[in-house]
Amino acid sequence: MSELRADLAIISEWIEPGSRVLDLGCGDGKLLRHLQETRGVSGYGLEIDADNVAACVRNGVNVLQTDLDAGLSDFDPDSFDYVVMTQTLQAVNYPHLLIDEMLRVGRQGIITFPNFGHWRLRYYLALKGRMPMSGALPHTWYDTPNIHLCTIKDFEALCREKRLRILQRHVLDHAHRARALSRVLPNVLAEVAMYRFERDTRRPS
């Protein structure tokens, strides 16, 4: 098994051993396999792509071929400790509703997404006047799965609006390294943002 991508390695540190995990858009199942092998977790991956489904089976992961845009109605409330969604938020029809669903079926949510506020993307748009493309966002504007891109500020505003409590945040550069600099001005310098969050049940102050 190849070395785990840096963001996935960080997620696996966030997850308590022995917990139940649902992975939305689980790809080839690498994260779940890693979690099964190193953290003793159990759970399922949801994936729409047939090749990825077969890859999950080869990785020994329980995978359900499902369209995330149809929601998570197959799952009962509070079925999971964590509902994880890596690099998929920007590709679904209704990200805000899916976040609600994540916290209906799970205790905590973990989301990673490409930060659209990164300076290189700003530069593309501001100076070149073209829709941004980058290593994390390699698609042309007319043929891209990424229909709901957002910035770190956007995401955190949504969290406030939804009264979600951010438990952990981590930002990475393009090579998925955690550079000190990107923590100073994350919305400009981070290429990938990672969050662990839950519903804020505290009384509003």
Binding site: V53, A54, V57, N62, V63, L64, T66
Partner: peptide, 28 residues
Amino acid sequence: VTYSEVEASQGHDAFLMNIPAYFDVFSA
């Protein structure tokens, strides 16, 4: 449980056929 919903035009009879997406998951 693993669930595969195979894109196939053949109807119910598809389960007897060698459809790549189906046999890929089945073999795996």
